[in-house]
């Protein structure tokens, strides 16, 4: 429906582009002074052997410079209140620790703490979600249709939702492709979408919650645009990533944020954060995989 938007906005654009001097001018707005806080992002999977924590500072909206790196922070990960790792600065705003033992999907509470000179310390807590096995997954070339009527590949994912708890999921797919029998196969991320009314579509992956099928089997029908006939062999690695409620709320807000960005007629959206005293997100996830051989 993008063409619709162009139709409506065209007259306005024509009007606002007639004479830049009249239609656009710089105005003074009395914005309250902003006290910088830490902006921290950490996406950690139960199977990861590397921890990356992205740490920067917020800046006032009219500050010309990019948000500065914070290189002298102390970054700690705690498990059930006990220090698990201290994570050193690596570069490019990233604090990194390699070759760790994967956290696993043990039902533990992890706390991320970051402190830095001249900033208020931040904390964020998450309970590791349990992975949920995929009972079946299937791929059918040109087996379904998108909302826009495009004939596309159908990807079906089935699983049993654990009952009695709220579960949140992300669904994605990688293709393991071999051009020629002599070539090494390579992996490529294949974006998924869905017309399922319960599913939210980020453009790259699908996310949803189990509010309407708690404790039951569910079959998600997704689609994908790829053309795989040209390859010698293709395998699909379909995964369900169980995520926390905070991550789900973040994904919802991210979609709203992206929709409202640069759109003067949309109500502005705030990106969800679970960082106390700061901005950003601490997210824990656990994967389960299913391989489809074509």
């Amino acid at each position: 429906m993008k063409i619709l938007k162009i139709f409506y906005l065209l007259p306005l654009l024509l009007l606002t582009s007639c004479d830049e001097d009249f239609f656009e001018q710089i105005v003074e707005v009395d914005v309250p002074e902003h006290t910088p806080t830490l902006a921290v992002s950490c996406y950690l999977n139960a199977a990861d052997t590397v921890i990356n924590v992205f740490v920067t500072s917020t800046v006032g909206i009219l500050v010309n410079e990019d948000p500065p790196e914070v290189t002298d922070a102390e970054v700690r990960l705690l498990k059930d209140g006990n220090l698990l790792y201290e994570i050193p600065y690596f570069g490019n705003s990233v604090y990194q620790l390699n070759n760790i033992t994967p956290l696993g999907d043990e039902n533990a509470v992890y706390t991320l703490e970051v402190s830095a000179p001249n900033f208020e310390s931040i904390t964020a807590k998450q309970r590791m979600p349990q992975s949920v096995p995929i009972s079946n997954a299937e791929f059918e070339a040109e087996g379904t249709i998108t909302e826009d009527g495009d004939r596309v590949n159908k990807v079906t994912i089935e699983w049993t939702d654990p009952g009695g708890v709220e579960n949140y999921y992300i669904f994605g797919m990688e293709a393991e492709i071999q051009f020629d029998p002599s070539d090494e196969p390579f992996r490529n991320y294949e974006p998924l979408g869905s017309t399922d009314p319960l599913a939210e579509d980020s453009g790259n992956y699908i996310y949803m919650k189990d509010a309407t099928f708690d404790g039951n089997n569910y079959k998600l029908i997704a689609y994908n645009y790829g053309d795989y006939e040209q390859f010698e062999s293709v395998k699909f690695h379909v995964f369900i990533q169980t995520i926390t409620e905070d991550r789900y709320l973040y994904e919802i807000s991210l979609e709203a944020y992206e929709n409202s960005k640069d759109n003067p007629f949309a109500e502005p959206a705030i990106l969800y954060s679970n960082i106390e005293n700061g901005s950003g997100l601490f997210s824990l996830t656990a994967n389960s995989l299913f391989t489809i051989e074509l």
Partner: peptide, 29 residues
């Protein structure tokens, strides 16, 4: 409603590999 501050944040592109791109996030008051 106007934005008051901004920060850089990684946005996940591939949930499997963890690939991300960085976006400048504006936060409104």
């Amino acid at each position: 409603t106007l934005p008051l501050y901004r920060y850089n944040s990684p946005i996940v592109a591939s949930p499997i590999s963890g690939d991300y791109y960085t976006d400048n996030i504006e936060t409104v008051g």
